[in-house]
Simulated scan of single mutants.
Amino acid sequence: MQFSDYIVYVDESGDHDLANVSPNYPVFVLAFCIFEKEAYVTRTVPNFQRLKFRWFGHDTIVFHEREIRKQLAPFKFLQNQEKRGQFIAEMNELIQEAEFTVIAAVINKERLKGRYKDPGNPYEIALQFCMERLYRYLNDNRQTDKMTHCILERRGKKEDASIELEFRRICDRGNFAGIHMDCLDIQFQEKAANSCGLQISDLIARPIGLAEIRPDQRNRAFEIVEQKFRRGANGRVTGYGLKIFP
């Protein structure tokens, strides 16, 4: 099978634990960032590297939303308000200009527990929602006869094996339409690989969750991400690029 014109980077925000749900962040978010490969290698990656060279003098820095938000090393310079404002503005501009499409699922864990006697695993629920919509996106772009790789950051041997098993179950007709998604494959990558796509997916996942938790609070990062969601023919995002459940 030939390789498709697209590559998908996947990251999450929050955890899938239903026993201890944080009142401050009671959701689990899974975000798929779909890049057209040519645009990714010729524009997105070089622009991302330029940003790193500009601020750090080298491009080996790995951008992680948590470290940036908490101003941890190597982002301690963000404790300076002026530098923080400038850096965030440049990073937002980079993401805004980057050419990619977002498909995301937000699982409200409290509602999930309250509505279902056997609620299931939030990660697995979100994965199915995202994969179903990814398949439709690829079908719309005539790519289902080619192989598209979904890249996830490696977490641990046991967790990765569990995710891969669920991924392949969904591909093997374990989805709403009963389609055999043999055009999708899963690959795990070490954090140290410094993947631009994985870093962008990490940066956008939490803003999506915050938009669900605090819809009335200004969320500049989400305003940018919102423009990237897959949309239906009527321009609708809900159900196409964003699934809120339940």
Rank of each mutant, 00 (worst) to 15 (best):
V10M: 14
G239V: 08
P26Y: 10
Q128P: 00
N47T: 07
N219C: 10
I68F: 06
P46E: 01
P122S: 12
F48T: 03
R54M: 11
V21H: 02
E190G: 04
I103F: 07
F167S: 06
L203I: 05
Y25G: 00
E153Q: 08
G174P: 06
A126S: 13
R136W: 07
H149V: 15
N194G: 03
I179N: 09
N194F: 01
E65Q: 11
V62L: 14
M131F: 07
L203A: 09
P246I: 06
E93V: 00
R168V: 05
L198S: 11
N139E: 15
Q217A: 06
M1N: 14
P119F: 05
G235M: 11
P122D: 14
I163E: 07
D5H: 08
N141M: 14
R133H: 12
N108S: 13
I61K: 03
K52F: 06
L94K: 07
E67L: 14
E12L: 04
P215G: 07
A177M: 01
L112C: 12
S201H: 00
N121Y: 01
P74R: 15
V45C: 00
F77L: 14
E82F: 11
A205G: 02
K113G: 01
S195P: 08
V225D: 10
A233Y: 05
H64M: 05
L138W: 08
N80W: 01
T42F: 12
C150D: 02
I88E: 12
R136S: 09
D185F: 05
G156I: 06
C130G: 00
F63H: 10
R111A: 12
I34C: 08
Y9I: 01
R169D: 06
G197A: 13
G178R: 01
I88V: 09
F222A: 07
D59W: 02
R214T: 10
R173H: 02
E65I: 05
I151V: 14
L198Y: 08
K158I: 15
L184H: 08
N47I: 00
R154Y: 08
A161E: 12
T238P: 07
I208C: 15
K76E: 10
I34P: 11
R168Q: 12
T148N: 00
L112H: 08
Q227A: 09
I107K: 12
D140Y: 11
V102R: 03
Y116P: 11
D216E: 14
A177T: 04
L94Q: 01
R206H: 08
K52R: 06
F129D: 13
L242M: 03
A161I: 03
A221W: 13
A211T: 01
A126W: 04
A233S: 12
K191C: 05
I208T: 05
A19G: 07
L127S: 04
D11T: 08
F129P: 02
I151A: 13
I244H: 03
L134Q: 09
K76D: 14
D140K: 13
A211R: 15
